[in-house]
Write a protein that binds this DNA or RNA. Structure first.
Lengths: 333, 333
DNA sequence: ATGCACTATTCACACGAGTGCACAACTCAA
DNA sequence: TTGAGTTGTGCACTCGTGTGAATAGTGCAT
């Protein structure tokens, strides 16, 4: 760093090491043709000056910036927030920089994606169901690698890393049956994606295998207040157990049951295993999507597509697991 | 966009408009010397080709990228997540692109800041108490504008936009006294910052003005489980009302009181007015920091420092307001 | 026609880094 | 001394854009 605030350039390093700028560049890129002596001299000079390469310039020349666009909606949902945090961490480990857009309007998302393109991102990671189609279109015309996380709805031609909702539904069915439930309901989200439906059919199918059938099916938007209202109709059917497509729905249901104060609440299973689910107040059995793994795979997939633009599209499915808590403990009534 | 996926450059626009590349550049930068006729021709050509300027190249030439680094910790705290979402939205409106680092380790933060510098960010916005000192140091040596959000602890020489914790404390004291409370406790966070302390003293001072004194003072880390444990000692003092430095603390306290099941719970006031506070289960009176305003001001401040590197450091204080809910309704006992 | 003022456009260089190719320096054999 | 072979460096161009200074074009008065 210069005293006037200007950054150190490779030219300064070159001068201090009594060598040309080209050689500095080669040392930094590990070119084997450079002799040990000069390599050491250059590294020493770079170190003394505190040289940090200008990644913008490098990006321009290399046609690869190391920047990855991340599009996410609804950060107020702790699931998304947590996923974003993990994504950013994993990207850091791979030396990728996340240029993030978070918003809830379609216009906003579209202008944001245009901006991402202008910044020459190497790839885009999307965790934003409502905008999938716009994003897919934009990345196709911009021919940028795209990885959808936790979404399947795109055409087969786009890479996606998702959870196995059907398997989760089956696990939940097994668990509830083992816990002694005999009548079942499903409390789903009304998102336009197939996520909720996949969980539901996995659940229903496995129930059928146990010779039970799925009773009431309700849906609601994925936020608390509407879910709380919808919960009433779920409860009115008085099922032994309810599988919810989301922890927010599950908590709304639990709260509604608590307030109703008539008889024991149903067993409840949530989805996402959010921090709130673990609070003693809810003590909610929940499906954990293994976000740790899902985000790792997502970043790895994006990275692979950056390195090899011919890489085939990847469709990965991460196995979820069930975290059993008090909300599905058999009642001693 | 070319068929082979290469981006359209200004050169292509120039050729299509039968004009030189310089003129294209001037049209886009609104140079008044360009005649209306050619301006229209250039814009038409750009439009037909779908030209989007390469902001990386522009950034290199202009020594200003339009990228702003955002450093944030603990996205699992919904307050931080919400603040980040708002920051990103406001930045989008100002045509700034957020390069985000989110993490909880100091080493991670330091390497991330170094990376931000390499990407030649125009400024840094930090919402990360634990790393303030590293960030301040890094921005100083890199001579990058820095705006701390909701933190005051830096030296006076760094710009900061924060809430008025003392005023909030006073408002809460007024409110609780008006509601009939006579004995008071404070449940604070043990962060190294002065945030919690500021709220506490504002509270205590106003209580004193009402001729009351602050009784029990407990502290805990800002996450649920430790708070839940610490809540027991708060309750053991049996105060009429408790002011909590954070909604998480407040909810932990409310849950502890609910579980204890001995007598009416104290009145409880939280801080941050998170979405959870509004849920009927908690119905928590809470201080709203006016994040909308705080984030707007933060972004505006950063932008001003980008445009004018000589801009004076700014220290803004945003007035909070109190959202009254059921947790401070007078008991009819 | 010539000079002058004024406008619209182009030329050529810069930003900071990466890289193919030419070439300098050195070794070794004849 | 000359030639070939090997090794390490440097020149010069490139990435896509912005911009000061030079130039071409126009109108008008002399």
């Amino acid at each position: 760093m210069h005293s006037d605030g200007r950054k150190i350039r490779s030219l300064e390093v070159a001068e201090r090491a009594q060598i040309s700028r080209s050689t500095v560049s080669r040392v930094l890129s590990g070119d084997p043709r450079i002799s040990e002596a000069t390599r050491a001299r250059v590294l020493a000079a770079a170190d003394e000056l505190g040289y940090q390469p200008n990644l913008i310039a490098r990006g321009l020349k290399n046609q690869s910036t190391g920047i990855v666009g991340v599009v996410v909606t609804d950060l107020d949902n702790s699931y998304h927030a947590h996923a974003l945090q993990l994504l950013i961490e994993k990207m850091g480990e791979k030396r990728l920089a996340p240029l993030v857009f978070a918003g809830n309007s379609v216009e906003g998302a579209e202008s944001a994606i245009a901006r991402l393109m202008s910044y020459q991102v190497d790839a885009v990671i999307a965790l934003a169901a409502p905008f999938s189609q716009s994003i897919i279109a934009a990345c196709r015309t911009g021919s940028k690698p795209l990885v959808l996380m936790n979404r399947h709805e795109g055409e087969e031609s786009v890479s996606a890393v998702g959870g196995d909702g059907a398997a989760a539904g089956a696990m939940v069915a097994d668990h509830l049956v083992a816990r002694g439930a005999r009548s079942f309901a499903f409390f789903g989200g009304d998102d336009s994606t197939k996520i909720s439906m996949e969980r539901q059919t996995g659940f229903a199918d496995r129930l059928a295998a146990h010779s039970f059938s799925l009773g009431t099916v309700c849906t609601s938007r994925y936020s608390y207040d509407p879910a709380r209202r919808a919960a009433v109709s779920v409860l009115s059917a008085a099922p032994d157990a309810v599988f919810c497509a989301n922890d927010t729905l599950a908590m709304a249901l639990a709260d509604a049951a608590r307030e109703r104060d008539a008889g024991p609440p149903p067993m409840i299973v949530g989805y996402d295993n959010s921090a709130l689910a673990a609070r003693p107040l809810y003590d909610l059995t929940s499906v954990d999507q293994n976000l740790e793994e899902m985000t790792s795979r997502t970043v790895e997939t994006a990275l692979a597509m950056v390195f090899d633009s011919q890489a085939p599209t990847v469709r990965l499915t991460i196995s979820p697991f069930l975290v059993e808590r008090g909300s599905t403990r058999p009642r001693t009534s």
